[in-house]
Structures are given as C-alpha cells and as structure tokens.
C-alpha cells in the first residue's frame, strides 16, 4: 500500500476521528495528538488494512480505546486541573462572550454527559452513522445504543429548557 492509497482510505474519516477524540478528551491539543497517534498506528499496520472489514469503524473503535487509555493514564489524572484551562487557550474573550450564547450551553451540557452517551451523541447526531455502525464501533448492542442516545437527547433538551426558561444552569 503506497502513501497515496493510504491517504485515500484515511482522509475521508480523519476529521471524524479527530472530533470523536475531542469529544472524549475535551482539549484540542490532546485530540490532535490522539488523532495523529491513531493515524500513525494505522500507517504502521498498513499491511493489515486490507484484512479489516470496515477500516473506518475499526479506526473509530481504535480512537475510542486510545482516548480511554489516555483518560485512564496517570498523565491525564495529573493534568486534570489544567484540563479545563487548555480548552480556552484560543480566544478566551470570545469564549466568554459565547458563554451567554445558548449554542455553547449545548457543548457544556454534552461535556457533562457520561462518556458513553457523549460518544453516541457524537457518532449519531454529529457524524450521522447508523445504529449498526455505532454498535459495531462501541462494542454495544443496538438497543443499548438507542437507549443511551435517547437518554442523552432527553438530558440535553431538559437542561436546555431549564436554561431557556429560568436563565439558570
């Protein structure tokens, strides 16, 4: 497999990998590193790529596992306090202004969701995968995906309604 062939297979979903990583790791820098790592792993195992049924789903699973490892690792635990700072590195002023914007409320609400629901929301509502693909990527069954998706959507809606009506969190 040449570099060009590899890029052709990987390019279509590299952004999806990045967004999933960002959903789980929150900070942009960490997500970039994670994406790079995942892509390099794919590249190093490029001989095996043809054997995979679905390279995209495989990479998403890889990303998920990699991010979990990252979150579990000691390094992440040490950086926990720093973590939330990271995110506001670019344009902090603009971010502050945006905080009043309800769109950024959504991102806050999603950040508070459990990891699994976050991933399901990401894969379904943002990336638009169907249930079978998601179930495949996350090693869950179809019903479980539906249930956590429904829970996530309801939570987001409820919290949004709250902020909308009372102007509180």
């Amino acid at each position: 497999m040449t570099q060009q062939e590899f890029l052709n297979t990987v390019m279509p979903f590299k952004d999806k990998v990045y967004r999933l990583a960002k959903r789980l790791l929150v900070s942009t820098e960490e997500a970039e590193d994670a994406t790079q790592e995942v892509l390099l792993k794919l590249w190093n195992n490029k001989k095996k790529i043809q054997e995979y049924k679905n390279v995209e789903a495989f990479s998403m699973t890889m990303t998920k596992n990699f991010c979990f490892d990252k979150l579990k690792s000691k390094q992440a635990q040490n950086l926990k306090i720093v973590h939330s700072n990271y995110e506001e590195k670019n344009l902090p002023l603009q971010k502050q202004v945006e905080l009043h914007d309800s769109v950024s409320w959504v991102s806050k609400i999603i950040e508070e969701l459990p990891e699994q629901q976050r991933m399901v929301i990401q894969l379904r509502d943002i990336e638009g995968y169907d249930f079978n693909e998601i179930a495949d990527m996350l090693d869950m069954n179809n019903t479980a995906v539906r249930v956590s998706l429904s829970r996530a959507r309801k939570t987001i809606r409820e919290k949004l309604t709250n902020t909308h009506n009372y102007g509180i969190k």
């Binding site: 990045y18 970039e32 309800s102 769109v103 959504v106 943002i126 909308h164």
Partner: peptide
C-alpha cells in the same frame, strides 16, 4: 425554540476539521 441551539451545535461541530 429550545431545540434550535442543539441542532445548530451539531451542525457547527460537523464542520470541525483536523
């Protein structure tokens, strides 16, 4: 109206690139 930010957010996030 409540749902609007939710879908807008999804849309915006879809455009983020690596």
């Amino acid at each position: 109206e409540v749902y609007k930010p939710m879908f807008t957010y999804f849309m915006v996030n879809q455009q983020e690139q690596f």
